[in-house]
Structures are given as structure tokens and as C-alpha cells.
Simulated scan of single mutants.
Amino acid sequence: MEIINMFVDTIKNLALESGFAGIDFKTLIMFIISGVLIYLAIGRQFEPLLLLPIAFGMLLTNLPGAEMFHSEFFQGTSIDYGQVLHDGGLLDILYLGVKLGIYPPLIFLGIGAMTDFGPLIANPKSFLLGAAAQAGIFFTFIVAAFLPFYSLQEAGAIAIIGGADGPTAIYVAKTLAPQLLGSIAVAAYSYMALVPVIQPPIMRALTTKKERSVIMEQLRPVSRIEKILFPIIVTLVVSLLVPSAAPLMGMLMLGNIMKESGVVDRLVKTAQNELMNIITIFLGVTVGATATADVFLSFKTLGIIALGLAAFCLGTAAGVLFGKIMYKATGGKVNPLIGSAGVSAVPMAARVSQKVGQKENPANFLLMHAMGPNVAGVIGSAVAAGVLLSVLG
């Protein structure tokens, strides 16, 4: 009889100490949300390289009793690194790369190593389209700042979603509103994945058939010396104007000058592949880990989704409208559709410009013209991030 009682007590203790005992309604909802994001990443291929790790990170952080991530370790302005290393779980240690601002610049290093700035150099006016598309960020910041639910820092972190640049959104959010990092990252990458769905209706609504049918002149060839000087000049100008943008801009242009130099192929391949892939895994899982049930399941998250969508739509609209201005100013030589590529979703936004333009005129090839504003948008979003960090950080 005593043995039976011991067996029963052991079973009871195991049941009470297991994760099943800690599952509540909020935990179940987070499991469902994680499952939906995993489906979107695998089944629909919505930004799978980062959405899949983010979704699985959400699953891991909400496992009762797993103790893989402790958000309380990272609250406040200072971090007790000894506590993190001694008492922290796996995701706590990996999250230091986000909190210290290491992962996003390294992602930018890989992006720079894969980016051709030739179309932007060949048509410097593209800078204006990339700058115009950042209007959605600042307009949304003003709107969010007036809402009673968000502080100025939170408004800035939410507004950066309008740049359609995941690493930049994470870089800003980890400084201005780390408690909203998971929600902001999920919103940013979701809208990046939905670029082919969101942008075309806006583009068609703001342009005429005649404007969409404009065939642009072929871009001039860009010399190797121009491509080598470009990252050096941009780094100096942008970093001196907005020092807070230097980590992102510096790494972006370092990757690009390595690519264009032609003398460090091994480093370029590492930045494009192994390093990029490793950091992508760490960044995705740890950002997902910040989406705990208490933080993610809140009214603020719904606001982030709505404001992030507004920022992205406004950025697209601002780029197209500025493209119409250039269309008028050049006597009809600029197709306004390329202005929509001024957001930083490379190269998806440029492909959407090409697709919409070719639907109106099968002889239209806008891809290379749209790549100019598209890569300008990468620079523009980094500058916008630097401005927000300088003002609000």
C-alpha cells in the first residue's frame, strides 16, 4: 500500500511540475499565433527566412517552465550581465546580440554585400524617391505620438515599420521600446511579405494608365571607380549628418565596398552566406522570444499592427506621388510607379513596380529603374532610424 501511495504521489508531483500544469488561456493563444506564423512562413512562404525563426521563438518563450527567456533581465537602462550569464536561459544569452545592437548591423553587412548600387549611381534622382517614401514613418510617428496609448519612444519604434526594413525596425525598437520588440518585428516582416498584395492597389489608385505605361530610357553604364567611391562617400556624408545611423550605414557600405572591390571574394561570400544565415537564425529566434503572452496579447499590439500598416501604405503613396511630380517635371520621362519602390523592401518592391508597369505595357521594363529608389530606400530607412534615435533615444 505504501508503495502505491508513493507511486501516486510521484505521478502527482510530475504532473504539477510539468509544463502542462502551467498552460493557461493566454499560453494557448500564443501557441495558436505561433502556429499561424509557422504556416505563413512554410505554407505561404511569407518572409520564411526570418518569420519561421520568429514564430518558433514565440513558441519557445511561451513554454511554461522552460525558463529559456526572462524579459525582466532586460528591463531598465542597465543590464546585469552576470545575472544573465549565470541564471539566464539559452535565449537570454542569444538576446544580448539584439540588446547590444550587434545583430541588425551584421545583417546590414550581408545586405550590403549582396546589393548593387549601380542603378542609384546611374540615376541620382532616385535618392529623392527613396527619401519621399520615408514620409510614412514621420507622419505615423506624429499620429502615434498623439495617441494616449503610446509614449514618444514607442511611437518612434512603431513608425519605423513604415520603412519596410526588418533589421532597422528591430534596431530602433530594441532601444526605444524593447517591450514592443516582438510585436513590431512580426508586423514589420509581415508587411514586407505582403508587399505584392498591399502596394499594387495604391499604385493604381494614384496613377493614370498613361503614367503607368511610360517607358524609361536605359540607364547609363556605371564605372567600377564610381561603385567603389560611392560607399565611402555615403558613409562619410550620412554618418557625419546623423551619427546615430553610423552602425547601420557603416556596415551596409562595408559589405558593399567589399563586393565592389573584387579583392576579398572570401569575405564577401562569408558575409552573403554563412554569417548572414547564422545571424538571421539568432536574430529571428531571440526577437520571437520577446513576444511573451503578457506583452503580445495587449491592445498595444493591435495598435502596432494598424499603425504599421498605415505607415507602410503612406510610405508607398508618398513615393508614388513624388514620382508623379518627377513625371511632370521631366516632361513624362519618369514612370511614377518606380516611386513605390522607395520603401526598403529589397528587391520585392522593385519587382512589384516592374510587374504593375508591365501589366499596362508589355514592352515596359522598370526593374532596374525601380532598383534605384529601392536601394535608396535602404539608405533612407537607416537615416530615418538615426534621426529617431537621436531625437528620442
Rank of each mutant, 00 (worst) to 15 (best):
residue 4 I to C: 00
residue 8 V to P: 01
residue 12 K to F: 10
residue 14 L to R: 15
residue 16 L to D: 14
residue 19 G to P: 09
residue 20 F to Y: 12
residue 29 I to M: 12
residue 36 V to T: 04
residue 39 Y to V: 07
residue 43 G to C: 01
residue 44 R to V: 02
residue 45 Q to V: 14
residue 49 L to V: 14
residue 68 M to D: 05
residue 69 F to A: 14
residue 71 S to N: 12
residue 72 E to V: 07
residue 72 E to G: 15
residue 73 F to N: 03
residue 73 F to T: 01
residue 78 S to H: 08
residue 87 D to P: 02
residue 89 G to F: 03
residue 92 D to W: 02
residue 93 I to Y: 02
residue 100 L to E: 15
residue 101 G to N: 13
residue 105 P to Y: 04
residue 107 I to K: 11
residue 108 F to S: 10
residue 109 L to C: 00
residue 110 G to N: 05
residue 115 T to V: 10
residue 122 A to K: 12
residue 125 K to M: 05
residue 127 F to S: 08
residue 130 G to Q: 05
residue 131 A to K: 03
residue 140 T to N: 03
residue 142 I to L: 15
residue 145 A to V: 00
residue 145 A to I: 01
residue 149 F to A: 07
residue 149 F to L: 09
residue 150 Y to G: 04
residue 150 Y to Q: 00
residue 156 G to R: 14
residue 165 D to F: 02
residue 166 G to I: 15
residue 167 P to V: 06
residue 167 P to D: 06
residue 169 A to S: 15
residue 172 V to C: 08
residue 184 I to R: 09
residue 191 Y to Q: 10
residue 192 M to G: 04
residue 197 V to I: 14
residue 204 R to Q: 14
residue 205 A to N: 10
residue 209 K to F: 03
residue 212 R to G: 10
residue 214 V to W: 05
residue 226 E to A: 03
residue 227 K to S: 06
residue 233 I to K: 06
residue 234 V to M: 15
residue 235 T to A: 08
residue 244 S to F: 06
residue 254 L to D: 12
residue 267 L to F: 15
residue 268 V to E: 11
residue 270 T to I: 08
residue 278 I to W: 11
residue 278 I to H: 01
residue 283 L to Q: 09
residue 291 A to I: 10
residue 295 V to C: 02
residue 297 L to H: 08
residue 297 L to P: 02
residue 299 F to K: 14
residue 307 L to P: 08
residue 310 A to E: 02
residue 312 F to M: 11
residue 321 L to N: 00
residue 323 G to W: 07
residue 324 K to A: 07
residue 330 T to N: 04
residue 334 V to C: 06
residue 343 V to R: 10
residue 348 M to S: 08
residue 349 A to W: 04
residue 350 A to H: 07
residue 357 G to N: 12
residue 363 A to S: 13
residue 372 G to H: 11
residue 377 G to E: 12
residue 377 G to F: 07
residue 381 S to N: 13
residue 385 A to M: 07
residue 393 G to T: 13
